[in-house]
Design a binder for these strands. Structure first.
Lengths: 339, 339
DNA sequence: TCTATTGATTAGAGCGCTCTAATCTTGTAG
DNA sequence: CTACAAGATTAGAGCGCTCTAATCAATAGA
């Protein structure tokens, strides 16, 4: 059996309570005793039992984290940011996946709550709002990539509208007038990206063209083929704002297949700045979201609630940035693509 | 305050012990009482407190998981597999990242152990063997993507030698004779892949060509340029076994840049079957490791130890499979590439 | 010398649960 | 009608810790 506080106390010749104080770095312990306790603990290889501690102190250092899909690099990055912040502050992560199914997410959430965590962070959950509000009655809840009106719930989102606007501003600034958006359909965040695209286009006095697509490369190919079938070569959009990076890659393939060059004939902007986009071969201009930062902010929002420093909900809306690479270039009406 | 067992017991008019039995689905509870308890629990919104349960029962349903880098899709997949198996069996994951630094991993590991977990799973840890053995003295330990001789430690690895052999067999079967390997250098698993390549080449009576590289796309480009500078066009290897998918992408870019077609002039095989490889645009032939399966096996190895069903260490060596896509094609000495 | 006062230490209850052993019900056989 | 086994229920101790309140030691002030 692993040593307990009692064992350490016996070996150091003090009481259990004193050992407890030492373990928690209490200032009201004499140096002599502290040293003795520390030595005894060292010799026995003693380590405090977090669960017992949590039970006795009625506090928790556990943060429940539910990710609906870890394979998605976006969430993996957020979790990394979360973990870094949590570790630094002495919190531990209990992690679950929900598999994008409300039923499984419900189980996952219940499972997290049974730890009586200090708080819970849900990454892009698909459970109904009522389930989230129920959770918020038990402990602070932070939502990432999902909005909520509940007062016990903080949210951290990337500003998808701003991201699309960034892409449009970039293309418009390069002289493009006919710009199309490959819409992500029902995918998370797609609606915002579409709205941002439309608003930005109107701001530039341009007519927004929206093509129904999905967040996959094959959908990107398909959408571009539709575009090619719909428009004459002279009227074809010269700028494409894809729903995400995968979609952009598909779009580029279809363009090249049709004999169009990127970026000479058509400029393409992706979204997400995945490892894909950074490949030299592709060098995709894309919109980058501060993923690790989002994890950190989610943690901080939670901790503020835990410490009782804040009761008002906070709604973080993070600003994405544009990473300009090689798939976008200037366009002039004369047809040539200046370099 | 959230309701406790005592509250449920009072409301149902029974003892706390009876509630405990019901919560654990004990068969020795009458149907009447069980129903009453369940109803009371439902009405109060009672949920068992896992930590208290764990403390009292001297058992744990917590599995500690240390990932050295979640951004790596490989580990994210393994964790998904792990989580699925754990959830199904009623276990919970406490997750940590070690950031590829022995010191930080040490802290992370200590933190996991302070939960007194049922077991610990380390994904590609870089801590010294002594630290792993020390952990194994406290609870069962399973290593993924790392070997160990310790008897309290189980391991789950992918057979990197077999993977490279698969790639070589495929190319040799297509008629290729001059095949080069772009070596991953010090990256995890690179040494095995290299050994497997060399052994397989010799088995086919071919001379192994190994080019020093890294697991990045830029390194892949660089290595191919070296290859092009070293060999005359007639003597250039016609088959390339890249260190991983990123490396393969770089290699392909450099080949195309040099006016060589893939797969008509040179066939390329990647490794890892990342989302990259599946892109239609690329359609990379690559070696797939059963990542989710590895997570599941790691979980099962742990559970067997926890249940005391096994004390002998187990060493899983998983067989990768080849995913043939469009970057490999037949080669005949006459120069043409039959299709 | 005696009492405050301050700081260091400890006793003991209790966190929410499980588990063993004891107690209470029945049903059934003698 | 009694005895007893089998099943259902409960009392109570204890898991490893924290926390409050009490105790103890040592110094200072009167």
């Amino acid at each position: 059996m692993r040593p307990t506080m009692e064992d350490v106390a016996a070996r150091a010749g003090v009481s259990r309570a004193l050992v407890s104080l030492v373990m928690r770095n209490s200032p009201k312990v004499s140096d002599v005793r502290r040293a003795a306790v520390l030595r005894a603990a060292e010799e026995l290889g003693y380590q405090p039992h977090v669960m017992a501690r949590s039970l006795a102190s009625r506090t928790s250092t556990v943060l429940g984290v539910m990710v609906n899909d870890l394979r998605n690099a976006f969430f993996a990055d957020v979790v990394e940011g979360l973990d870094a912040a949590a570790q630094a502050a002495g919190f531990d992560l209990v992690l679950n996946t929900g598999g994008r199914s409300p039923a499984r997410e419900g189980n996952a959430l219940r499972s997290l709550l049974s730890f009586r965590p200090a708080g819970v962070i849900l990454l892009s959950p698909v459970v109904p709002a009522s389930a989230i509000e129920a959770a918020a009655r038990q402990c602070p809840v932070v939502l990432v990539s999902r909005t909520s009106r509940a007062s016990g719930v903080d949210t951290v989102n990337d500003d998808g509208e701003a991201g699309s606007a960034l892409a449009v501003d970039h293309l418009a600034g390069l002289g493009h007038r006919r710009i199309a958006h490959l819409d992500g359909g029902g995918a998370a965040g797609a609606a915002q990206r579409r709205r941002g695209f439309q608003a930005a286009m109107r701001r530039h006095g341009l007519e927004p063209i929206v093509v129904r697509s999905e967040h996959t490369d094959t959908a990107g190919e398909k959408s571009v083929r539709e575009l090619l079938a719909t428009y004459s070569r002279a009227e074809l959009p010269t700028g494409l704002v894809a729903g995400n990076d995968f979609n952009a890659v598909g779009a580029i393939s279809a363009l090249e297949e049709a004999g169009l060059r990127v970026p000479e004939d058509v400029s393409v902007v992706g979204y997400d700045n995945t490892s894909l986009a950074a490949l030299r071969h592709l060098s995709l201009t894309t919109v980058d979201q501060p993923r690790t930062e989002m994890g950190r902010l989610a943690f901080e929002a939670l901790v503020e609630r835990v410490r009782g420093e804040r009761t008002e909900p906070v709604r973080h809306l993070l600003h994405p940035s544009l990473v300009v690479r090689a798939t976008t270039a200037g366009f002039s009406a004369t047809g040539g693509a200046p370099r």
